[in-house]
Design a protein around this nucleic acid. Structure first.
Lengths: 211, 211
DNA sequence: CCCAAAATCCCCCAAATATGGGATTTCCCT
DNA sequence: AGGGAAATCCCATATTTGGGGGATTTTGGG
């Protein structure tokens, strides 16, 4: 018997899912709540499920924060995200939080069931588009320099790396044997090319592999 | 029509796969070779397939090396690894090389077909055990950082995220409905706790998962 | 109840940064 | 040979940041 709980704020979707799971002979849905808070208020050690189907956009705490809390309290629990979000930030935040599955909404119930069984059996399931983003993460992370041409010149790139290292303009000047005014000019050009207005933005783009 | 090629050293498996794909009305297998070298010798721009099903353990060049060569020459090509290997190194080497799918051997042909269609349509497919390893990579990678407990309080963490987003002290104050002086105090505390002296260092620590 | 941490805010000064303008020289490609 | 980009440097002003000091109130755990 697979025990599954649901955290989904849309009541129509929530009830439909619960009815579907309860119609399976070997799956039982014990709880279906509209928020992480409401769910946590009812959850006890003796009723921890095998799998949780979790939305991300919820009233109050987000599903991702919910994953963190639930995984910290019950590390063996399997949580499947079910959401409309395609954006990489949500995907990777979910994975980093400990999600074992990531489904995009509008999947047929049969496939959701398949994902639940897969996760219950120790595997993971990602919707194909999600899987593609995850795989691209590995590939593009490896080939950022080759794939996406940086608009910065060699000296500008050098200055960016120095900024990332936390060096001040004066430090960069000393290190590169150029004047502080030259560093300032390079930084002006960098900001212009990247369409940013602060070194924080430059550092983030660099560390995220965007330049 | 989906064009697929096969690189598999076991002749029995290779022929069986080719026969299966050719039995599909809308899939055509143009080439089935026993090694990357043999395959590359016949491959021309005009017969580049949509998808390649690639073993990893091959005579001569490994499938992973083959992925690198093929992706560098034909970046849009989709390559699905099909192998017995469960070990993480092979998995991540394949992903970093640019594979779009990773199947474990002994999958039913029907599911292999499903994976081929998924990849052809722009998604990715991983066998559930592989997907689990990939997701664990993200979670456990995060846990290395999480095991090193962040010394920052909730508000301090909020300020760090705002810094990473490129916000100025004034912006942070406005967004959090606190005064600029409060933001300054938080930042002083953050620098003290993290033993740094610039926001650049804070941002780098944050993006590298060190806090 | 007490204590420590968190959260809040204030003041001051020096240094750094952001942004605006300008300039010359060198290098490389057409 | 010419043009454009890169690399170099200068000046000015306004704003932000870093670091020093201080303070009070709230919160939560022992």
């Amino acid at each position: 018997m697979i025990f599954i709980d649901i955290i989904e704020d849309d009541p129509v979707v929530r009830e439909a899912l619960k009815d579907f799971f309860d119609s399976r002979e070997d799956i039982h849905c014990s709880a279906a709540k509209e928020s992480v808070e409401a769910y946590l208020a009812t959850l006890k050690v003796e009723n921890v499920p095998d799998v949780i189907l979790m939305d991300i956009g919820l009233p109050g705490m987000s599903g991702i924060s919910g994953v963190k809390i639930l995984k910290s309290r019950y590390p063996e629990i399997n949580i499947i995200m079910q959401t409309v979000y395609h954006d990489s930030q949500k995907i990777f935040q979910s994975l980093c939080a400990g999600a074992s599955g990531y489904l995009l909404k509008n999947m047929p119930f049969k496939e959701i069931e398949n994902a639940v069984r897969t996760v219950y059996e120790g595997g993971s399931f990602m919707s194909p588009q999600i899987a593609r983003k995850v795989m691209d993460f590995f590939y593009k992370g490896k080939n950022v320099a080759a794939s996406k041409q940086s608009p910065l010149s060699g000296k500008e790139t050098e200055v960016v790396h120095a900024l990332v290292d936390g060096l001040s303009y004066k430090d960069i000047a000393d290190k590169s044997f150029i004047s502080v005014e030259t560093v300032r000019s390079h930084i002006k050009n960098i900001y212009k090319k990247l369409h940013v207005h602060s070194k924080a933005e430059v550092i983030r783009k660099s560390l995220n592999g965007e330049i």
